[in-house]
């Protein structure tokens, strides 16, 4: 029965379009403020702020919406919060200085990049045990998981590779060399493409996961913006794969890329140092964190327009939206 519920909701949403967006809770980690800001996606107002430990960065939520995970980088731990009460439930062993992580599509385990130790730590979120530590390249950062959960992809910032880790054996099965300082790895929902952003290289590599080959490198160009400011970081793809959104850091823009042709369609002006992105489950809205202007830009996905800027805590870094 449960399986049909989301499908039904989607179908209803499609019928009702362009009706009012459903209300979701949006959680923003504020790296310098040591807090998480909670935003209501319908009113686009801040509803609450709670303490999240030292230097919260990576943030994600369990598929059932009951556990909110926050990388508290300077506490060397992952803090787990109740997304409704904001109470800390427990912590997870993360290894030192956790920055980004990804949950297995089933909700367990959690794969954490440990920049200091050149390893990816695999943690069981139920038993709170470390299942494995996988040695990867220098300064592991971005974490992506294939939709079938077979592979976790880690990017290493100084080695400049996307490492494909088999989630059963914890062995690296492929290494794809990408451009300088790869930051983020994002699969399409159908698993056809893997996007890897390279902050310093200024490109997003489009990788065919089946062959582990780069089929295209997306580059960016904005008149009047120096090329070195166009630094791709966070990447999100619509469920149908038609649009890819890329946060371009200090250029203060989010690029919209066509998911078929991989050509840039538009650049949306955001706040300063735009960093990470998150869709609402209905994909009507995309939230983008702006680290240097202490706000979140709200993007209307259909219209490809920034519709609002919401002040949050100091140096917003990561963002996640609660599921349906």
């Amino acid at each position: 029965m449960r399986r049909h519920a989301p499908a039904l909701a989607l179908a209803l949403a499609a019928l009702a379009a362009p009706g009012p967006a459903a209300a979701y809770m949006v959680y923003v980690s504020n790296e310098k403020g040591n807090t998480v800001t909670v935003i209501d996606s319908e009113t686009l107002e801040v509803v609450d702020t709670f303490d999240a430990g030292q230097r919260p960065r990576g943030i994600t939520i369990s598929p059932d919406g009951t556990e909110l995970y926050v990388c508290a980088s300077d506490d060397d731990t992952v803090r787990v919060f109740d997304p409704k009460t904001y109470e800390q439930l427990h912590t997870l062993p993360s290894g030192p200085d956790p920055e980004l992580f990804v949950l297995h599509p089933s909700g367990n385990p959690l794969y954490i990049a440990n920049e200091d130790d050149n390893i990816v730590t695999v943690v069981d979120v139920k038993t709170h045990q470390v299942l494995a530590e996988v040695p990867v390249g220098v300064e592991p950062e971005g974490m992506g998981v294939s939709p079938d959960g077979a592979f976790v992809v880690n990017t290493s910032e100084t080695t400049n590779m996307a490492h494909f880790i088999d989630t059963k054996t914890y062995e690296i099965v492929e290494n794809v060399l990408v451009d300088q300082r790869p930051r983020f790895a994002q699969f399409t929902d159908d698993g056809k493409w893997l996007y890897v952003s390279a902050e310093i290289g200024g490109t997003v590599s489009v990788i065919d996961p089946a062959s582990a080959e780069i089929v295209k490198k997306i580059s960016f160009e904005v008149p009047g913006v120096v090329p070195e400011a166009l630094q791709p970081v966070g990447v999100r793809v619509t469920k149908d794969g038609s649009k890819v959104f890329v946060a371009l850091g200090p250029s203060n823009r989010v690029a919209v890329v066509d998911g078929e042709t991989h050509e840039v369609l538009d650049y949306l002006l955001t706040g300063q140092r735009v960093w990470q992105l998150a869709f609402t489950p209905d994909e009507k809205l995309l939230f983008a964190t702006n680290g240097n202007t202490n706000d979140v830009s709200v993007i209307d996905v259909e219209e490809m327009k920034v519709i609002k800027s919401i002040p949050v805590g100091q140096q917003p870094w990561g963002v996640v939206v609660a599921p349906e």
Partner: peptide, 10 residues
């Protein structure tokens, strides 16, 4: 050491 970590994969 950094070069060697990458070299391991190369």
């Amino acid at each position: 050491e950094d070069n060697q970590t990458t070299g391991r994969f190369m």
